[in-house]
């Protein structure tokens, strides 16, 4: 049987529910021979700030059991270089582009969006309010509902494009922050970002990473991500969710859809296999065909609780 893979996230129609996650796919042009961006439902850029950022000293990454911890420090080329160098090439190929946005102050988020608003070829903004690596890089927005609502509102006022807020799993109350983002005007919520974590070198009696702590990603976090997607979906069933956390297979995508995600991002898996998103897409299609699922949208949020 043929399977209809298309889905929607808020007002955005996608050819399939699979996206490449921010920070794992560059600016969409790095892995063309393995995974061209136009074959994905969408892709999310590396987080962009108003000006280029150098990022953290090394070591920035460390592998852990079924996962990895990173503290890249939001290194990026800046919104201007993205709009000037990458976007024209992307427009020729025609993928659905979501720009991941961050700033050290609220007005910097707006600055990035306003620069992007002058360009065609961007479908959505994903606000990074949860990167745990840079103290001033957004952690307070994602952890405290009131500033988060205000920030989302300021970004909402700057664009009519789709606005997603990527939530932190480290927030004291996830559902409260989800509500705050929605009341600020978010069209959808992306969850989850990485979990704050540490790897320790027993020989040196020091953290492995230069910054000490970082963000944990990979299959190790999938059960937590699924639980959080399900909790937010239950609390806010009308709000579209983009699920992310440790996806490695088509079956993982199905699990996120069942938990309430309308689309799902693939991140760390790309580091293992640059063709992972397309492999996962074909696995999803096969799973649906084998299980009599005619449309992937049927799966969204239909988890049965015993």
């Amino acid at each position: 049987m043929s399977v209809r893979l298309n889905t929607t996230v808020g007002g955005l129609a996608l050819a399939n529910p699979i996206m490449a996650a921010s920070g794992t796919y560059g600016y969409g042009l790095d892995l063309l021979e393995f995974c061209p961006p136009e074959r994905l439902g969408a892709f999310v850029t590396k987080g962009l700030s108003p000006r280029p950022r150098a990022g953290n000293p090394v070591p920035r990454i460390v592998e852990t059991a079924a996962g990895m911890i990173n503290a890249i420090g939001l290194q990026n080329i800046g919104v201007e270089a993205f709009c000037r160098d990458a976007l024209p090439l992307l427009r020729q190929r025609g993928p659905v582009v979501a720009v991941n946005v961050f700033g050290e102050r609220m007005d910097e988020y707006v600055e990035v969006i306003e620069r992007c608003e002058r360009e065609d070829g961007i479908a959505a903004y994903e606000l990074n309010v949860s990167c745990p690596n840079v103290t001033a890089g957004g952690i307070e927005f994602g952890h405290d509902p009131r500033p988060l609502e205000r920030l989302t509102g300021m970004c909402r006022a700057a664009t009519r494009r789709q606005l997603w807020v990527k939530l932190s799993p480290n927030a004291p109350d996830l559902v409260e922050t989800a509500r705050a983002a929605v009341s600020g005007g978010a069209d959808a919520l992306t969850l989850i970002n990485t979990l704050r974590a540490i790897a320790i070198d027993a020989e040196r009696r020091r953290p492995v990473l230069a910054t000490g702590c970082g963000g944990l990603s990979g299959p190790a976090i999938k059960p937590i991500a699924l639980r959080m997607v399900w909790e937010v979906h239950k609390a806010l069933p009308a709000v579209p969710v983009v699920g992310i956390g440790g996806v490695e297979s088509g079956r993982d995508i199905v699990e996120f859809l069942l938990a309430g995600a309308s689309a799902v991002q693939v991140g760390t898996a790309i580091f293992r296999d640059p063709g992972a998103p397309l492999r996962i897409l074909s696995e999803l299609e096969r799973f649906c065909a084998e299980h009599g699922v005619a449309e992937v949208r049927e799966l969204v949020g239909v988890l049965e609780w015993h």
Binding site: T24, D30, V58, R60, I61, N70, P274
Partner: peptide
């Protein structure tokens, strides 16, 4: 040599500092 996750320039884990200050 630096620890690498992806090997293709997208994870930005394996950076080195250049004379012009860029990682």
């Amino acid at each position: 040599e630096e620890p690498m996750a992806c090997g293709v320039g997208v994870c930005l884990g394996c950076v080195v500092k250049l004379a012009d200050g860029r990682y």
